[in-house]
Simulated assay, not measured.
Amino acid sequence: MNAPVITVDGPSGSGKGTVSRLVAERLGWHWLDSGAMYRLVALAALRRDMDLDDVDALRGLAAGLDARFQADDAGDPVILLDGAPVGAELRTEQAGNAASRVAAHQSVRDALLERQRGFRQPPGLVADGRDMGTVVFTEAPLKVFLTASCEERARRRYKQLKEQGLSANLLALSEELAERDRRDAERSVAPLKPADDAVVLDSTHMGIESVLEEVLRLARERGLTD
């Protein structure tokens, strides 16, 4: 538990997942995509036609979730649910919106908390999500809150979906992101907000490389890397 942690929190589409993965690669650290865990619970619930407001059923599902994070022969991450790769299905808007609803239940968060903390291993961990710095790793020496305008985040998501060959509507995406932001910020359980000691980075007018270099600079400043 002495392994250092860098947390990168922020709203959907802020680039936190890409930045976190790249920081972990540059440092040779482990990477935790905590949002994937909530998406996995949500996806499993959707596949079972479960009520996303049935707290008891969702808690049991989260506690016994058959989910694994592996790497393929090329070293790329592979996520398995019930023994099978989930692929792009995990990143659909349906899964994302369902994950936001599932994550609002305290009992679900409690069921996943120790699993998330278990990713903290030497030489270090980069953890991205919505409450990594405020709840899961409150003692992290570097906490980053990455944000961007709703319009810019919708544009990024639209481009990503188009590149994947999926249909998308920019206005609908912007409205969905705004609704998800509101739900995540107003929920009583672990609301989306920067930790008191977090560094807030607005990536609206920044490229991924610029954000990456700024996070690495902050890591060096805190003595986490050479």
Rank of each mutant, 00 (worst) to 15 (best):
Ser100Gln: 03
Leu125Thr: 01
Ala57Tyr: 00
Thr138His: 04
Pro122Arg: 12
Ala84Val: 15
Met206Phe: 12
Val41Gly: 06
Glu152Leu: 00
Ala63Arg: 13
Glu176Val: 13
Ala84Cys: 11
Pro85Phe: 10
Leu43Glu: 01
Val78Gly: 06
Asn2Cys: 14
Ala103Trp: 09
Arg68Ser: 13
Ala62Tyr: 04
Arg39Leu: 05
Val55Phe: 05
Ala178Trp: 03
Pro194Gly: 04
Tyr158Trp: 05
Gly133Thr: 08
Phe137Val: 07
Asp202Val: 08
Ala219Val: 10
Glu89Arg: 13
Ala168Asn: 00
Met50Ser: 03
Glu139Ala: 14
Met1Trp: 00
Asn169Gly: 15
Ala140Phe: 02
Thr92Val: 11
Ala45Cys: 11
Asn169Arg: 10
Val135Tyr: 07
Asp128Ser: 09
Glu139Lys: 03
Leu43Arg: 03
Asp72Leu: 14
Ala45Arg: 03
Gly223Met: 09
Thr147Asn: 04
Leu113Met: 13
Ser167Glu: 15
Phe119Glu: 07
Arg117Lys: 15
Ser34Tyr: 09
Arg21Phe: 01
Asn97Lys: 10
Asp196Gln: 15
Arg48Met: 12
Val126His: 01
Ala84Ile: 14
Ala45Asn: 07
Ala198Gln: 05
Leu201Phe: 11
Asp51Thr: 04
Pro141Ser: 10
Gln116Ile: 02
Ala190Arg: 06
Ser174Gln: 15
Val86Asn: 11
Met37Ile: 15
Arg180Gly: 03
Ala178Ile: 00
Lys193Leu: 14
Gly35Thr: 10
Met206Asn: 00
Leu27Asp: 01
Glu209Cys: 09
Gly96Val: 01
Gly165Trp: 05
Glu213His: 13
Thr92Ala: 08
Ile6Cys: 11
Ala148Cys: 11
Ile6Lys: 08
Pro4Thr: 11
Leu112His: 02
Pro141Tyr: 13
Gly13Asp: 00
Asp131Tyr: 05
Arg21Gln: 15
Leu218Asp: 08
Leu216Ile: 12
Gly207Leu: 10
Val199Tyr: 02
Val78Cys: 08
Asn2Pro: 11
Leu43Trp: 10
Phe119Asn: 09
Pro85Trp: 11
Ala44Leu: 05
Met1Ser: 14
Arg187Glu: 05
Ile6Arg: 06
Lys193Glu: 11
Arg187Phe: 02
Val5Thr: 04
Asp196Glu: 14
Asp9Trp: 04
Asp54Val: 02
Arg220Val: 12
Leu58Gly: 09
Leu52Glu: 07
Ala111Asp: 11
Val108Pro: 02
Arg187His: 08
Thr92Arg: 12
Ala62Thr: 09
Pro194Met: 05
His105Ala: 13
Ser188Phe: 00
Glu209Ser: 15
Ala67Cys: 12
Glu186Phe: 00
Leu43Ala: 01
Ser107Cys: 06
Gly10His: 04
Gln106Phe: 15
Val126Gln: 05
Ala3Gln: 01
Thr204Trp: 08
Gly118Leu: 00
Glu175Gly: 01
